[in-house]
């Protein structure tokens, strides 16, 4: 869909967004307001980021002065089978869990985007799991996933299926953690819900006049209109998926047989158990580059499927 905005409308929009020149005192005030954040960013985020880059070129055991190592830490990764294992585990998790979270989150949001009694309560109930502390959630899921006494295997047993040892068998441990990741879809659901409620109803009415059924309305109206929200969820979900740590740390400790050795768990062990802060920093920078490349690819191809209502395209 292409908008051909009239020239005067375009001028008006440009005037709105044209920054006015601020006076000295206005600038000072503005900087005073943002100064705590800027200082916080420099001291606690920007500084450590730069420091970690430098550390990645050193051998540093945390308590002694670092020694320059050049690219040795980066070269070391190629000989580290656990680096590849952790990268594989995390990538599989991200590739399966993120789309699943998007689909389930959107599905729940569609169900909750109706005007029925107690809808506020339902929305709260679906959002509630997202605010629970991860440690208590992990402990609870250990029980849900128990082979002998767990809720899931009890449910399967109703159909004569003996469920596996979800967390104790290498082939099932990662799927179990992916399944568990759906527990937090409430947060995404809320964002989809906001997106769905922002879709003008006249679009649905127009589609209905053109003979569109519910499925066609969903595919040709709903999906395009919330595609920026899906893009946002995809990028944020991908970054979060590559930073999964607490669940394997608490529930499986990377096992069984490294089946849930997530990248950050491998990084954490190298940093704080094996005293290899330089190698751990290098691992973190490789992860950063990996996520950055994937994010750029997503943005590169997003033009093909993301629709911005207010976007003005020059064709």
């Amino acid at each position: 869909m292409v908008f051909n905005a009239p020239a005067d409308c375009l001028m008006h929009i440009q005037n709105i967004f044209q920054p006015k020149r601020l006076s000295f005192w206005e600038s000072l005030n503005a900087w005073l307001f943002v100064l705590p954040w800027v200082l916080g960013f420099i001291l606690f985020t920007g500084g450590p980021i730069l420091a970690s880059l430098l550390i990645s070129f050193t051998n540093w055991d945390i308590v002694n002065p670092p020694q320059w190592a050049g690219f040795a830490n980066y070269e070391m990764m190629f000989g580290d089978p656990l680096f590849f294992q952790s990268l594989k585990v995390t990538t599989i998790y991200a590739l399966v869990a993120v789309p699943l979270q998007i689909i389930v989150g959107l599905f729940i949001a569609l169900l909750l985007n109706t005007k029925i009694r107690l809808i506020g309560l339902y929305r709260t109930l679906f959002y509630l799991p997202a605010v629970l502390p991860i440690v208590s959630v992990a402990v609870m899921w250990r029980w849900i996933l128990s082979r002998d006494w767990g809720l899931i295997n009890w449910f399967l047993s109703l159909f004569g299926v003996y469920g596996p040892g979800w967390l104790s068998e290498p082939e099932w441990a990662l799927p179990a953690l992916i399944l568990m990741s759906l527990w937090g879809v409430g947060a995404g659901m809320l964002i989809y819900l906001a997106g769905l409620q922002g879709i003008p109803t006249d679009l649905y009415e127009a589609a209905k006049v053109d003979g569109a059924g519910p499925w066609a309305s969903f595919v040709y109206v709903t999906l395009p209109m919330i595609s920026p929200v899906i893009l946002f969820q995809l990028v944020v979900g991908l970054i979060a998926a590559f930073q999964v740590f607490a669940q394997p740390f608490i529930m499986t400790e990377g096992g069984p047989q490294n089946a849930t050795l997530f990248y950050l768990l491998h990084l954490f062990r190298n940093a704080f158990e094996f005293f290899r802060m330089g190698y751990a920093s290098a691992l973190s920078w490789v992860l950063f580059m990996y996520i950055a490349v994937l994010t750029l690819l997503i943005f590169r191809f997003s033009a093909a499927w993301v629709f911005y209502e207010g976007e003005i395209r020059n064709e």
């Binding site: 128990s146 002998d148 040892g165 104790s168």
Partner: peptide
Amino acid sequence: PSASDLAD
């Protein structure tokens, strides 16, 4: 105990 026993 098996791994499943210890998972609980």
